[in-house]
Design a protein around this nucleic acid. Structure first.
Lengths: 391, 391
DNA sequence: ACACAAATTCGAATCGATTCGACTAAGCTA
DNA sequence: TAGCTTAGTCGAATCGATTCGAATTTGTGT
């Protein structure tokens, strides 16, 4: 005799209405009901309305997504791994712009977004989330861990904002790699170079970099052109390379994250000589321009400059990166490298969808444009409009 | 003869490894394998390792979440409905703080978050997302639409930040209502009152309110104490009531959203008389204090004040609401009503989990505290430290 | 060594839909 | 009216796990 009482937890006491119930009520087969609820099935209008009628009578709200996703092998959800705590991850609006783009692409295809990641201490749910693909933000400290998990599950994966993991050197960004993995290409180097050229044209020769975290542990530290690039953050490294394409000797300071306060700290070091300003930098050694690797960092540098009594851009030029709307800083017309964040996010979303469908991902490149704001200007000692004096 | 070739789309050509494959390989039953992979099942260590061994040999990464969620009737995902476009929703960090809290609570319980909502034009996916419960942010313009959908599916629901829908008047916030619906209580009125009292103690008598959108269409408009509250935004209304508990005649201006620019617009109206400043307000009519319903709005009001040549707090005091970290505005020590956003988010997450489990939701109340920053001060014409002169 | 309890493992039903080929009516042509 | 297409409906298999009671093994007391 069958019929184990192995009931699963029911939120309400009443049993759930199923497609089969509707079929019985309407006197048709389950297949017909299923088709009636799926958008484009071959079914007569009369039959469909009859089914819908029964459904509403029974209070059936449509097929159970869980069952549907099992049968179809798709859940319609795409996982986004932010790595950091949400609060931290979204402090910099660039991430939101990216996510917004992803949501746009994915949403228009009828899919949804699942936020994955370890809420510190809690169980990583990458391993058990019902997602069809995963988009990794390349700024996570636990990047390789996540990467590994996704690989194991054999899910398609898109990397956004560069590769920070061990295997990074094995594949060029922009190429569809191992096995359903796609890395978005965004020419960070070219963008940085663009910015550096802008500064050179203004007569600057001594520029300093304030970079995003370079190391796995996000340590703050000075770096010079003699140090090899650590190779942990592809984005940060590329942006440094871009600057060095123009100023081969450029060194700088690596921040611990993309925040104004971090930028301020870094600014004090590169402009003032040390964080506490105890050993002020000799005027002739002080850089006349700073390239920050994010707008938030740039704002911090500007703040540091103000604290050191330096005028921007007369004494020092500051160039940002990202070109995101700085809510609350409307009065500041920051010179920055505007990257098409939303478009990038959208492309990542589309790539994920392509991978899911097994389609070839259409490769795409993104380029930033320079916004000449009010924070960069002629190098001190240069007559405006005049070419840099040869030495 | 069975065996239709009704294969679903496979990302890779190779067939997926299933729990049954592992069972076969290890020479045990599927139940055993299932137990081996579930955390606390009764199983000998020897057997478990044997199963795991087989699994790794076959490259089995653990049970398919889709199948598991069908069987268990749980997907382990909680839906969050932001209503607005992501980019818009997250401009104000208060939302992120809330979401962060939710993610924390939910993540620690091993669940994940799914971002739901209509990415404009795309299909709403509330109806088809495999979620176990839904948390609605009460700031959506399409609130009732979402509400309806969730109700139809019979999902547990938590409302965060007040009720903006038709049925709002039917239930008191904080009470577990109709059917697995829970509205979080956060004493907006009390908080607003607290802020108003602070201003009264400083001698202010003429205060003006800059409110969050009051109407369904988010229209900008003046409102006075004679107008009835529209009743569309519970949060905004309560905060107005709180102010009127102290200043019964307080009127103001309703912004179109919680952004600095909106605050600036509103500030020009309440402080300057009109947005274009064509008919400047008589000095005696001008409010000496403005209570903004969000920090971002407050920043905008301060900016407007500056543009009108008013000094904050000497000419006009400005009080914010939320107490969120204003990235990039570190120099501004805003007086504000700090609400425990993360804790609130966390509570919403926990409530959702409780509802899912059919547990009684433990009701909880939240209270904001006043941060006395540098943007509120003695009313003009009052000697500092002196009680307001009686009239 | 034997009965009995405890600890594991196994079988089988089930969760709720989707889908494909087979089948049944109509609708048309000759 | 027989023969053939076309449209719409139905049956049945299946997606991949979980779970519960029954069956089996292992261990213990006397």
């Amino acid at each position: 005799m069958p019929g184990h009482s192995q009931d699963r937890a029911e939120t309400s006491g009443t049993k759930r209405v199923t497609l089969a119930d509707v079929a019985r009520h309407a006197g048709v087969s389950t297949s017909t009901v299923s088709i009636a609820f799926s958008k484009g099935g071959p079914i007569s209008e009369r039959m469909r309305s009859r089914v819908i009628e029964s459904a509403t009578q029974l209070g059936y709200a449509g097929p159970d997504p869980r069952a549907a996703s099992l049968r179809r092998g798709r859940s319609g959800l795409i996982g986004v791994v932010l790595g950091e705590r949400l609060g931290g991850a979204f402090r910099d609006l660039i991430r939101i712009a990216l996510l917004d783009g992803i949501a746009d692409a994915v949403g228009n295809a009828g899919s949804g977004l699942a936020l994955l990641g370890d809420t510190d201490g809690g169980p990583l749910n990458i391993a058990t989330a019902p997602v069809d693909a995963v988009i990794l933000f390349g700024c996570s400290t636990r990047f390789d861990e996540s990467f590994e998990l996704v690989c194991q599950r054999g899910l398609p994966m898109v990397e956004l904002e560069g590769a920070e993991f061990e295997g990074a050197e094995f594949h060029e960004p922009g190429t569809p790699i191992p096995h359903g993995i796609y890395v978005l290409d965004s020419d960070n180097r070219g963008a940085a170079k663009l910015g550096a050229e802008h500064l050179r044209n203004l007569g600057h020769t001594n520029v300093s970099i304030v970079s995003l975290p370079l190391d796995r542990d996000r340590a703050r530290h000075r770096f010079s052109a003699r140090d090899p690039l650590p190779g942990h953050s592809f984005v940060a490294d590329e942006r440094i390379r871009g600057v060095r394409d123009v100023f081969p000797a450029a060194g700088g300071y690596s921040a611990a994250s993309s925040l104004v306060e971090e930028g301020r700290l870094a600014g004090r070091v590169v402009l003032g000589g040390s964080a506490d300003n105890e050993h002020p930098l000799d005027r002739s050694l002080r850089p006349t321009a700073v390239i920050a690797q994010s707008d938030l960092l740039a704002v911090g540098v500007i703040r540091a400059a103000a604290e050191l009594g330096l005028h921007v851009p007369n004494d020092v030029s500051v160039l940002g990166f990202d070109g995101i709307p700085l809510e609350g800083l409307a009065e500041l017309d920051l010179s920055t490298l505007v990257q098409p964040a939303q478009a990038k996010g959208r492309a990542a979303g589309l790539a994920a969808l392509d991978l899911i469908e097994g389609r070839q991902v259409s490769p795409q490149s993104f380029h930033s444009v320079l916004h000449e704001g009010a924070t960069t200007g002629q190098a001190p000692g240069q007559a405006p409009g005049q070419a840099p004096a040869p030495r």
